[in-house]
Simulated assay, not measured.
Amino acid sequence: MRRLARAPEQIGRLSGRLVDPGFATRAPAAAQDKARADLAANEAEARRLEVLLDPAP
């Protein structure tokens, strides 16, 4: 439950970083790639946890 509760915060933080023009111009490509990978992993984890916790009809 705690991971699911933190997911929107982490997703928002990473999304914000990726749309920040300063991050895009100053961060090394490896850091940008890691941020994109972290965002995708957090989104996938949030979806996985939602499915696990969603009671079937």
Results as ranks from 00 to 15, higher is better:
residue 34 K to P: 00
residue 15 S to C: 01
residue 17 R to W: 10
residue 43 E to V: 12
residue 54 D to Y: 10
residue 8 P to W: 07
residue 47 R to K: 14
residue 12 G to N: 11
residue 13 R to N: 10
residue 36 R to Q: 12
residue 6 R to S: 13
residue 34 K to N: 05
residue 16 G to P: 03
residue 50 E to S: 09
residue 45 E to Q: 14
residue 26 R to F: 09
residue 41 A to E: 07
residue 44 A to C: 04
residue 49 L to Q: 03
residue 56 A to W: 09
residue 1 M to F: 12
residue 43 E to W: 00
residue 56 A to V: 14
residue 50 E to N: 08
residue 30 A to R: 13
residue 47 R to W: 02
residue 51 V to E: 13
residue 42 N to I: 01
residue 24 A to C: 05
residue 57 P to T: 11
residue 32 Q to S: 08
residue 12 G to Q: 06
residue 35 A to F: 03
residue 19 V to I: 14
residue 52 L to R: 15
residue 11 I to S: 00
residue 33 D to V: 02
residue 37 A to T: 10
residue 47 R to V: 09
residue 57 P to H: 08
residue 34 K to W: 02
residue 34 K to M: 07
residue 14 L to C: 03
residue 48 R to P: 01
residue 22 G to S: 09
residue 54 D to C: 12
residue 38 D to H: 03
residue 39 L to Q: 02
residue 34 K to R: 15
residue 6 R to I: 07
residue 37 A to I: 02
residue 9 E to F: 12
residue 46 A to I: 05
residue 18 L to V: 00
residue 46 A to K: 08
residue 20 D to G: 04
residue 14 L to Q: 02
residue 25 T to D: 07
residue 24 A to D: 07
residue 10 Q to G: 08
residue 38 D to C: 04
residue 38 D to A: 13
residue 8 P to H: 05
residue 56 A to R: 15
residue 43 E to A: 04
residue 38 D to Q: 11
residue 6 R to A: 14
residue 54 D to A: 15
residue 57 P to I: 09
residue 33 D to G: 04
residue 21 P to Q: 07
residue 27 A to M: 04
residue 5 A to G: 06
residue 34 K to L: 13
residue 49 L to T: 05
residue 50 E to T: 14
residue 52 L to P: 00
residue 53 L to K: 10
residue 2 R to A: 15
residue 31 A to L: 12
residue 36 R to D: 01
residue 9 E to Q: 13
residue 3 R to I: 06
residue 57 P to K: 11
residue 35 A to R: 03
residue 24 A to P: 00
residue 25 T to M: 09
residue 40 A to V: 02
residue 27 A to R: 01
residue 51 V to R: 14
residue 22 G to R: 13
residue 21 P to A: 07
residue 5 A to D: 14
residue 38 D to M: 05
residue 56 A to I: 13
residue 41 A to V: 07
residue 28 P to R: 13
residue 12 G to W: 01
residue 36 R to T: 03
residue 22 G to N: 11
residue 39 L to P: 01
residue 52 L to A: 15
residue 57 P to G: 11
residue 27 A to G: 05
residue 46 A to F: 01
residue 35 A to T: 03
residue 24 A to V: 08
residue 16 G to R: 11
residue 14 L to Y: 00
residue 1 M to E: 14
residue 19 V to Y: 03
residue 34 K to Q: 13
residue 24 A to L: 14
residue 36 R to W: 02
residue 31 A to K: 09
